[in-house]
Deep mutational scan, measured.
Amino acid sequence: EPLWIRPDAPSRCTWQLGRPASESPHHHTAPAKSPKILPDILKKIGDTPMVRINKIGKKFGLKCELLAKCEFFNAGGSVKDRISLRMIEDAERDGTLKPGDTIIEPTSGNTGIGLALAAAVRGYRCIIVMPEKMSSEKVDVLRALGAEIVRTPTNARFDSPESHVGVAWRLKNEIPNSHILDQYRNASNPLAHYDTTADEILQQCDGKLDMLVASVGTGGTITGIARKLKEKCPGCRIIGVDPEGSILAEPEELNQTEQTTYEVEGIGYDFIPTVLDRTVVDKWFKSNDEEAFTFARMLIAQEGLLCGGSAGSTVAVAVKAAQELQEGQRCVVILPDSVRNYMTKFLSDRWMLQKGFLKEEDLTEKKPWWWHLRVQELGLSAPLTVLPTITCGHTIEILREKGFDQAPVVDEAGVILGMVTLGNMLSSLLAGKVQPSDQVGKVIYKQFKQIRLTDTLGRLSHILEMDHFALVVHEQIQYHSTGKSSQRQMVFGVVTAIDLLNFVAAQERDQK
């Protein structure tokens, strides 16, 4: 057995438009009618409502009807409940999964919650491996369901041993009777949507819809739904939504950006999952974080739909894509998950301010006199920076000697690579993860907040409520011999709460 199987392995699926269902090699399930009293909570997966979006479509000038398939009504709160249950049931049916076995899954959280929910009911041990950027709410729900959680670096490539995929496979090879159901490759993922989600949409719309818009992560949702719609409703256009920084969209030119990270969760990847059939997507749109969270908040405030950030991405694209539809036509959007997962993220004004998705003037509360002053007023001194090749031991000596707790790590040209902190280095040394002679590049981390000289002290204040420091950066445009230009970030300084307090105190003292 291989040590790991690539999540982007070539698909062996034989589905073709027009091929009889009787030739399918898979076990198919028909939607079942729910009894009045459910035998367990797993029976509350599927049969989610279709809700008309009344205000947002009109606000953006849509002539067509805009409908939302509300997947956050599933038992675990997301569309991923469907595939989690289906993968477990299919693994039980073919004898792969037996009582007492362990389920391991690399996930952005929602599939993990679905699997942990099913594992709690069915009696399996469950280990979820997820990147650090995923919300604390997801972690809390997983723990409450009895799952064990392993976190991995957000910026690790999918084929790196440190990625959530790599760590999951390492655990599988170490733990007896453990299984990775593997949402990236498992046919049960798109089949769950082909058999149930798509049929529900067709039934709820009486077979009449002209466009379907869905955000894409593993691709199982859009693949399964689109294949069924292509068979039953061939005139329906399928629109895929991919965040900026991901590479799922086609044509490839759409993916060209210097951005590699994004805040919206559960969609987009740096590889093409095996289950994603991009041939059934008629057109791709890219979405960005700001519009995703703005539209998610709009869905909550104006439509009462308590959905997550990827739902915002989907609707932001839908109001663009559906401009081509006329009166009497219908566009369906998939709202994948609930706001429950993001209470401390985009639902929080403070978080939105820190990330730059909300401006101070958007909030009406009274601010102190210094709130709208610029960061450049602080008069920061030149920063202490270190090269990635310097040793951890030497870096600790320098920081202690100069009285700093942290320093930016830059390359020879001064471009920011990340940050090192005294606390992080000492804990890594004590844990045996690094040696004093190791290069400081081994303990770089990139989960820090950046701020510009033109940003306000109010925004800085919000950042420092949650973080010990902020890195002050400025952009530099560099022209190359080819005539092309590129933008790079340079370090201007490091600012802490002490710097802000000293500035405010000094100004008030001078005024007296």
Results as ranks from 00 to 15, higher is better:
residue 474 H to Y: 13
residue 486 S to D: 06
residue 456 T to S: 08
residue 356 G to Y: 05
residue 335 L to P: 02
residue 470 A to I: 02
residue 287 S to M: 09
residue 267 I to V: 09
residue 291 E to N: 08
residue 387 L to P: 15
residue 459 R to G: 10
residue 327 E to G: 13
residue 447 Q to C: 14
residue 412 E to W: 09
residue 435 Q to R: 10
residue 457 L to C: 15
residue 443 V to I: 11
residue 268 G to C: 04
residue 497 A to S: 15
residue 500 L to R: 02
residue 296 A to W: 02
residue 313 S to I: 02
residue 419 M to T: 12
residue 290 E to S: 14
residue 254 L to N: 08
residue 355 K to A: 06
residue 239 I to K: 02
residue 474 H to A: 06
residue 268 G to R: 02
residue 490 M to Y: 14
residue 250 E to N: 07
residue 438 D to K: 15
residue 300 I to P: 02
residue 478 Q to V: 06
residue 398 I to A: 10
residue 374 R to D: 05
residue 422 L to I: 14
residue 391 T to V: 14
residue 362 D to R: 14
residue 238 I to T: 15
residue 430 L to F: 15
residue 436 P to T: 15
residue 378 L to H: 08
residue 424 N to L: 14
residue 352 M to G: 04
residue 400 R to Y: 14
residue 416 I to R: 07
residue 343 M to P: 02
residue 401 E to F: 11
residue 322 A to Y: 02
residue 505 A to G: 11
residue 359 K to A: 08
residue 260 T to C: 08
residue 375 V to R: 08
residue 461 S to M: 13
residue 387 L to I: 13
residue 436 P to S: 11
residue 245 G to Q: 07
residue 496 T to A: 13
residue 404 F to E: 02
residue 286 K to D: 02
residue 313 S to H: 05
residue 350 R to N: 10
residue 485 S to L: 11
residue 329 Q to F: 09
residue 388 P to D: 02
residue 507 Q to V: 09
residue 385 T to H: 02
residue 478 Q to N: 13
residue 477 I to S: 08
residue 359 K to N: 13
residue 374 R to V: 09
residue 463 I to S: 09
residue 498 I to D: 13
residue 399 L to I: 10
residue 282 D to S: 13
residue 402 K to F: 09
residue 412 E to R: 06
residue 443 V to Y: 13
residue 341 N to Y: 04
residue 301 A to Q: 07
residue 332 V to M: 15
residue 285 F to V: 15
residue 268 G to V: 02
residue 407 A to Q: 12
residue 409 V to R: 02
residue 405 D to A: 13
residue 282 D to A: 07
residue 367 K to C: 15
residue 385 T to F: 08
residue 356 G to P: 05
residue 488 R to L: 14
residue 422 L to A: 15
residue 430 L to G: 05
residue 242 D to T: 07
residue 242 D to L: 04
residue 313 S to P: 11
residue 408 P to E: 02
residue 440 V to R: 02
residue 375 V to Y: 02
residue 470 A to L: 12
residue 257 T to E: 02
residue 392 C to G: 05
residue 436 P to F: 11
residue 425 M to H: 02
residue 374 R to N: 13
residue 421 T to R: 14
residue 501 L to P: 06
residue 471 L to S: 11
residue 387 L to F: 13
residue 479 Y to L: 13
residue 291 E to L: 10
residue 396 I to M: 15
residue 512 K to T: 10
residue 359 K to P: 02
residue 333 V to Y: 07
residue 347 L to C: 11
residue 435 Q to D: 14
residue 446 K to D: 08
residue 348 S to V: 08
residue 323 Q to W: 11
residue 395 T to F: 05
residue 343 M to F: 07
residue 367 K to V: 13
residue 341 N to R: 02
residue 298 M to I: 11
residue 447 Q to N: 12
residue 407 A to H: 04
residue 362 D to N: 05
residue 364 T to M: 11
residue 402 K to R: 13
residue 419 M to S: 12
residue 512 K to V: 14
residue 430 L to Q: 02
residue 495 V to M: 14
residue 441 G to P: 02
residue 307 C to D: 02
residue 477 I to Y: 15
residue 330 R to H: 14
residue 282 D to K: 14
residue 335 L to T: 02
residue 454 T to C: 12
residue 409 V to W: 02
residue 409 V to C: 15
residue 325 L to Y: 02
residue 435 Q to W: 09
residue 252 E to I: 02
residue 442 K to P: 12
residue 415 V to A: 13
residue 296 A to G: 08
residue 415 V to I: 14
residue 365 E to A: 11
residue 358 L to Y: 07
residue 309 G to S: 07
residue 467 D to F: 14
residue 242 D to S: 10
residue 300 I to V: 05
residue 449 K to M: 10
residue 512 K to A: 15
residue 323 Q to C: 12
residue 366 K to Q: 15
residue 259 Q to L: 14
residue 426 L to I: 10
residue 304 G to P: 02
residue 501 L to G: 05
residue 419 M to P: 11
residue 420 V to F: 12
residue 270 D to P: 02
residue 443 V to S: 15
residue 401 E to A: 15
residue 357 F to I: 05
residue 494 V to C: 15
residue 289 D to V: 02
residue 438 D to T: 02
residue 448 F to Q: 15
residue 255 N to V: 02
residue 355 K to Y: 09
residue 458 G to W: 13
residue 433 K to W: 02
residue 293 F to M: 02
residue 430 L to T: 12
residue 471 L to G: 15
residue 303 E to R: 02
residue 325 L to H: 02
residue 321 A to S: 06
residue 383 P to L: 12
residue 402 K to I: 09
residue 243 P to V: 08
residue 428 S to A: 09
residue 435 Q to A: 14
residue 470 A to G: 07
residue 355 K to S: 07
residue 242 D to R: 07
residue 453 L to R: 13
residue 422 L to N: 09
residue 453 L to P: 13
residue 451 I to R: 10
residue 258 E to V: 10
residue 288 N to A: 11
residue 251 P to C: 05
residue 289 D to T: 02
residue 384 L to I: 04
residue 429 L to I: 12
residue 421 T to F: 02
residue 241 V to R: 02
residue 488 R to S: 15
